[in-house]
Design a protein around this nucleic acid. Structure first.
Lengths: 198, 198
DNA sequence: GACGCAACAGGAACACGTTCCAGTCCCGCG
DNA sequence: CGCGGGACTGGAACGTGTTCCTGTTGCGTC
């Protein structure tokens, strides 16, 4: 296996370039954690990552690309961490809620980072659909696996997982835009999962 | 009843002010229809509405407020137009899809306007939650009424309507960000409604 | 009709995303 | 070692959302 986990689809040539790439994403996550979407300013990212502004734009063509790429890396890391611990629970509903609860708990711990990433997700256009679809697939497969561990998901399982993903997204939007509380996110998900998994 | 339908929560004093308010929202809708979110530039809105930039900001404290207010007015108007024509269909699923199909058809006719409004919805913060919740309530009650016409909606009806609203939002986001087609919006909604209304 | 004041017009100024350019550095190749 | 070209730096510059300031106008009050 590769040593450095494919950070994006394109392989960067030199070691120095991989390092710049990593520093930029690190700086992005750090700034987002500290001050949310607005604090991720391109000049600030460049300065903290110790690259010139033009270089930052050479690596990521826009702020949204940058944030979505950072989101994808974080999501991948957390999924990798969780890969070893299966969803607990006796019913599909319980296991799905376990998976969703873990993710939501993680997001709640870093509300500003969540705000930045969700906002970027919302503002993305077709140009970043690759990264976005990657995140969507990871979530869908995590949910279908929780519904029926180890089994090949049926078409209906996938449809249900997608609906739950939609509810999750809408609930996150409500939360990061300050209209609902993080508790409401889990409540919405519980209601949706109950309605869908019966 | 009032003659001029409360455009926002606050009543504007003079006739001239109500007229400015209307002109501003008209200009917003027109620019959004022509060029989407990016074309709704505050200077352009001010010029087309024939008000000064400072005046525009006196009426609407941000571009997002402006767009969400415009969305609320449009939504209210379309709901008022549709109030006379009940949802057709023999089952809750059919009636809900009829309601959703009408709205989606309407949105498809004006994709740039839809893009502008959905983007604004996504970028809104707590300051515009009043308008946003108004839109959400209108949608929810339209759906619960389609599910069981004339009846008082049960708690479960409301929960189902909210999930469908979430799916609708997520599907619209996918569409306006260029990741899916308008046809996919209706497909997602159909799948969700089928899963929920059984 | 005169006064006072809030709203408005016109426009400058600032912040941040984005683009662009001139000069410099690094690295492989002859 | 010297060259050439791509990558990087530093910084200027532009567009648009937002703020602010100054002067003017409309309108209710006396």
């Amino acid at each position: 296996m590769e040593a450095t986990s494919s950070l994006t689809q394109e392989a960067l040539g030199s070691e120095a370039q991989r390092d710049r790439h990593r520093r930029i994403l690190d700086a992005t996550i750090a700034l987002a954690s500290e001050g949310g979407f607005d604090a991720v300013q391109m000049r600030a990212v460049a300065e903290r990552a110790d690259v010139a502004l033009g270089t930052l734009y050479r690596y990521f063509p826009s702020k949204v690309h940058l944030l979505v790429s950072a989101l994808a890396r974080e999501f991948e890391q957390s999924q990798a961490e969780l890969a070893g611990s299966p969803a607990l629970g006796d019913t599909p509903h319980a296991r799905v809620m376990h998976v969703l609860g873990r993710s939501t708990t993680y997001l709640k711990q870093d509300p500003l980072l969540t705000e930045a990433l969700v906002r970027a997700f919302m503002f993305a256009d077709a140009g970043v659909s690759t990264e976005i679809n990657r995140v969507g697939r990871m979530l869908t497969s995590a949910l279908t696996d929780a519904m029926h561990p180890g089994a090949e998901p049926s078409e209906e399982d996938v449809a249900i997982a997608k609906v739950i993903g939609d509810v999750w997204l809408a609930a996150l939007v409500g939360w990061v835009t300050g209209r609902t509380s993080p508790g409401d996110v889990e409540k919405s998900l519980d209601v949706a999962a109950r309605l869908l998994l019966r």
